Simulated scan of single mutants.
Amino acid sequence: MFRRLALVAALAVVAVGCQQESPAGSPLDAFWSAAAQTDDQRSEVLGRTRALDSCALLPRAKLAELGSVIRVGTKDLNRCEAQLDVESHTKGKRVSWGVDAPLKEAPYESLAPGKGTVERIGAATVALLSDQEMDPSAAAVRDVQRTCSAQVRFPAGAGVTLAVDTPAGTEPCAFAKSVAQVIVGEWNREPRQGDSEDTVTTALTGADPCAVLPRLGPAARATGRELARCAVTLRDQEITLEYEYSGAEYMQSGLLAFTVGARPVYAVEANGYTFLDAAVGTGFEPAAESASGPLLPVIHVAGADRAALEEVMRQALSLFP
């Protein structure tokens, strides 16, 4: 039950120098202009990125300059989606975007080496890859819809991943570049979580999954830190703790394993691993269409040792009384 991978895009790019101007003309804050070198600096990048409101990086007023806004809102934790022009997925424009840190190498880079373009927008580098470059043979799909994947990258190691759909006969990466220009212009404001009226805030909004470590005692340490994921080693057991939004039907597909207070914890076992899930709030309707209905804020814990997993889940739930 590891996290479903959204096909969002990026090409690895080189960090750029400091105090370069954004399209709006204001210099990029010095913090975002230099690559993080130490653990403390990387931790601060995570914290400040986690505090950003993804939806506010594409305000409705700016989206309206790119098309008629049909709907916009929270799609997943740290991720938003907007539908422009018409509701139809193939006839309108759809943008899905979210903040991320540390930025990773593009998942498809090995599939399309040397393809795509990398451009500069102010202080950021922007990588774009169209469907045509990714798979020139998929002409039938392009007759219905065009897609572009992109990544806006700031020198500190944070940025925004984008997925854009546009109607057939259009150039999706040109539209993605217009979206990226807005994001670069808004980034320096560092809009706080909840600044956008379209953002759904939950118990997990802005929460650090590695905050559980002190509650696990000196035997626990983090071997990896991301916005919504913490890789934990506890008594030589490798455990993944992740915050996510998940459909109730999906989460409850496991068996009821135990309860923590009034909160049920569900478990699935497969291939020698156990996956635990527990909700820490009520559901909400996502901006994106969801086959499983409303989304719940969920703590997800995975690993091989059941006792260690249960300990991590109990301590993680205690962070959300």
Rank of each mutant, 00 (worst) to 15 (best):
F2H: 04
C148P: 06
E105L: 11
M313E: 07
L111V: 11
R94A: 05
G303V: 04
T223D: 12
A156G: 14
D131S: 14
K104Q: 06
T274D: 08
A308C: 05
D277S: 15
A36H: 09
P297Q: 08
E133P: 01
P107I: 05
G281N: 08
G283M: 06
E87V: 00
M134L: 08
T166A: 13
V13I: 02
S178Q: 07
G73T: 02
R79Q: 13
E289D: 08
Q83D: 13
F258A: 06
S22D: 10
A257W: 01
S88I: 08
V14R: 14
Y108I: 00
V95P: 00
R314V: 06
D39Y: 02
A228D: 10
R189A: 15
V152S: 15
L319G: 04
G122Y: 10
I239W: 00
V212L: 03
P286H: 12
R192A: 10
L162Y: 09
G122P: 04
R192W: 00
A174R: 15
L128F: 12
D100W: 03
A279C: 11
A9P: 06
A158L: 08
A270F: 02
A138M: 13
A106K: 12
P264R: 04
Y108V: 06
P155K: 14
A257Y: 01
L128P: 11
P191R: 15
P297K: 07
S137G: 15
V182L: 09
A316S: 14
L5K: 09
S290W: 02
V260M: 04
E311K: 06
E226N: 01
G217Y: 10
E44M: 12
T147A: 14
L317G: 02
Q252Y: 01
R229P: 00
T233Q: 12
T161I: 04
G272V: 01
V301E: 01
E81P: 00
D135N: 11
D277C: 05
D236S: 15
E44Y: 07
S22K: 14
A51Q: 13
A316T: 10
L103V: 05
R60I: 02
A222V: 03
R153F: 08
A138K: 06
V260P: 01
E65F: 07
L46P: 00
K177Y: 08
E109H: 04
A308H: 02
L213M: 06
S96N: 02
A168Q: 07
W32A: 13
E171R: 04
L255M: 07
V260E: 06
G261Y: 02
G217I: 07
G261S: 04
T259F: 07
H89L: 10
E249T: 09
Y250K: 09
G185R: 00
G98K: 00
A56H: 03
D39C: 00
D29V: 09
S110E: 04
F2V: 12
L296D: 10
T274Q: 13
E244Y: 00
F31V: 02
T49W: 12
V184T: 13
A257T: 01
A207I: 12
H89W: 06
A51I: 05
T49G: 03
V86Q: 09
V160G: 13
G122V: 01
L57Y: 11
C80G: 12
Q181D: 10
G261H: 03
V45I: 13
D165W: 02
L204K: 08
G114C: 12
G157F: 11
W97Y: 11
W32Y: 10
T282D: 15
T240N: 12
A308G: 14
A6S: 07
S110Q: 07
F275C: 01
R146W: 04
K62D: 08
G159E: 06
V200H: 09
S318D: 15
